[in-house]
């Protein structure tokens, strides 16, 4: 009757591993930027810029009023869109996943809606909602909700039958059954869905602004491109990439917290 340890790597191995990871994480980008700098001094293509020019453009373009005028509204719509997608996707997913008849009726319909590329909804949304924040959030949600919804349905449906029977036999309340059984049991799948939704939402944020906007990150990038402000355009793309990375990092932190039991359990069963 011994407790099974969580099989962590030994400290010495850990040290080597960390050093290796840091080297890879930092070394490769540094190398790439170096090559890019060398190459840019030789290139004559005026649509491609060197790292120096890009950094200057980045500083001048985004650090200042543009941050409040363009970046913040975009990020705000992105976050509203994401949270709305998570809320609606998980809520609908739980309901659909729990009721088999509903699931069977809705499944083909959901597959159809998912297959529609969300950008084509932008003209429709423009007609219905005008060029508003709401319209852009709707466009983001219309794309980002699907991976969350479908993964939640699958996760809820796959809730272990013995766990459910345990809940029934101990007369665990509906509320506890939802929050302490069904949602945690589906949480690994829900997290997978949210991760997929992040990139979809970012894409739709940009596209919705390119179509119909007078402010925002996507609008700015399109504007720079039309006016041959090439370095500025590239700096906008860099900023988009940075937003994507920050999102992924924040999500990673949240996921590790929420799914700590799941990763721990996997580690034990693998050992």
């Amino acid at each position: 009757m011994t407790a099974v340890g969580t099989g962590r790597a030994r400290p010495r191995d850990l040290g080597v591993q960390v050093a290796e990871n840091v080297l890879f994480a930092v070394g490769l980008p540094v190398l790439a930027v170096g090559l890019w700098a060398v190459w840019s001094t030789r290139s004559t293509n005026r649509f491609l810029v060197g790292p120096r020019t890009l950094l200057d453009a980045f500083r001048q373009t985004w650090i200042g009023p543009a941050f409040a005028d363009d970046v913040l509204p975009s990020v705000y719509r992105l976050l509203i869109g994401l949270f709305t997608s998570i809320l609606l996707g998980v809520a609908a997913g739980v309901v659909i996943g729990r009721f088999r008849p509903l699931r069977e009726i809705l499944e083909p319909l959901l597959e159809f809606f998912r297959a529609i590329p969300p950008p084509v909804l932008i003209p429709v949304a423009m007609l219905l909602l005008g060029i508003t924040d709401t319209m852009k959030v709707v466009v983001i949600v219309s794309g980002a909700i699907w991976p969350i919804l479908l993964n939640t349905i699958e996760g809820v449906r796959a809730t272990d039958s013995v766990m459910l029977e345990t809940a029934y036999s101990f007369r665990i309340s509906r509320w506890d059954r939802l929050w302490r059984l069904i949602l945690p049991a589906a949480s690994p799948r829900i997290m997978t869905g949210v991760r997929q939704a992040l990139s979809v939402a970012l894409i739709l944020m940009v596209i919705s602004e390119m179509f119909a906007s007078s402010a925002g990150l996507g609008y700015r990038i399109a504007y720079f491109q039309r006016n041959y402000l090439i370095a500025e355009m590239w700096s906008g793309i860099l900023l988009l990439g940075l937003i994507g990375v920050v999102l992924a990092v924040v999500f990673g932190v949240v996921e590790r917290r929420v799914l700590r039991w799941y990763h721990g359990m996997k580690e034990v069963t693998r050992a």
């Binding site: 009757m1 011994t2 407790a3 099974v4 969580t6 039991w261 721990g264 359990m265 034990v268 069963t269």
Partner: peptide, 9 residues
């Protein structure tokens, strides 16, 4: 957590 325990536990 349960998965940190042996079957008997």
């Amino acid at each position: 957590h349960p998965w940190q325990l042996s079957g008997g536990m």
